[in-house]
């Protein structure tokens, strides 16, 4: 098993914390894991990306960065930035898309239309039919998405079953001290939401 997970969003959304939890969990489960955060502009509302690569083969060599078209899973936390990251997802890869758009100041002032969640979903459906659309997320989004990811990961690849509700919860408890109760509650909400996405329609 060798998985590349590309995550994208905006500074302030907690994407780095989410990436740390996902990659840290793999590491603690004895996998070889790598994380790269491009976060230079994070605190100023700029684009943030996290690249996670993990494998159960200790002999496998790989670089920290994910090339265009090589992400097995893409997690998009903000509509505009997720659109900008389409090229990273491989054909037929899995995408977890969050319905949240942050309209930049110049667009509000010029009253330009911001891309909708439907447009985002439509765009991604040209590349894959493995889409998990999180239409009604709860804040904090990163914890909600961690719940969704934990619920759907084993369905994306059976080898990702080590992301179980209980073990990820333990990870959160160990690593996040501030606002733990709220975070766990949101994680659980996300998990339930993620499960609902798995049910055949």
């Amino acid at each position: 098993m060798f998985q590349s997970i590309f995550m994208t969003g905006l500074g302030g959304q907690g994407i780095i914390t989410l990436a740390n939890l996902i990659s840290g969990h793999a590491f603690e489960n004895g996998l070889k894991a790598s994380l790269f955060n491009a976060k230079g502009m994070a605190q100023r509302g700029g684009r943030v990306t996290s690249e996670i690569r993990l494998t159960d083969d200790p002999k496998l060599d790989f670089g920290a960065r994910i090339s265009v078209g090589k992400a097995d899973i893409l997690i998009g936390m903000e509509i505009g930035e997720t659109i900008n990251s389409l090229s990273f997802l491989k054909d037929g890869g899995a995408a977890i898309l969050l319905n949240h758009g942050f309209v930049p100041t110049p667009m509000i002032l010029k009253k330009e239309p911001y891309p909708s969640f439907e447009q985002l979903t439509e765009l991604y459906s040209t590349k894959t039919n493995i889409l998990f659309t999180v239409k009604e997320p709860k804040n904090p989004y990163n914890m909600f998405l961690l719940g969704v990811f934990t619920a759907v990961a084993p369905a994306i690849d059976g080898e990702l079953s080590f992301y179980s509700k209980q073990s990820v919860e333990e990870g959160i408890t160990k690593k996040l001290k501030r606002g733990l109760e709220e975070n766990l509650q949101t994680f659980n909400g996300g998990y339930v939401y993620g499960q609902s996405l798995l049910r055949p329609v």
Binding site: V68, I83, N84, L86, P104
Partner: peptide
């Protein structure tokens, strides 16, 4: 630079600003 055309058409930029 390899951004797919459909994505490029919807492309938005988030200028960084003061916190």
């Amino acid at each position: 630079a390899t951004m797919p055309k459909a994505a490029a058409e919807l492309n938005v930029k988030h200028p960084i600003t003061f916190c």
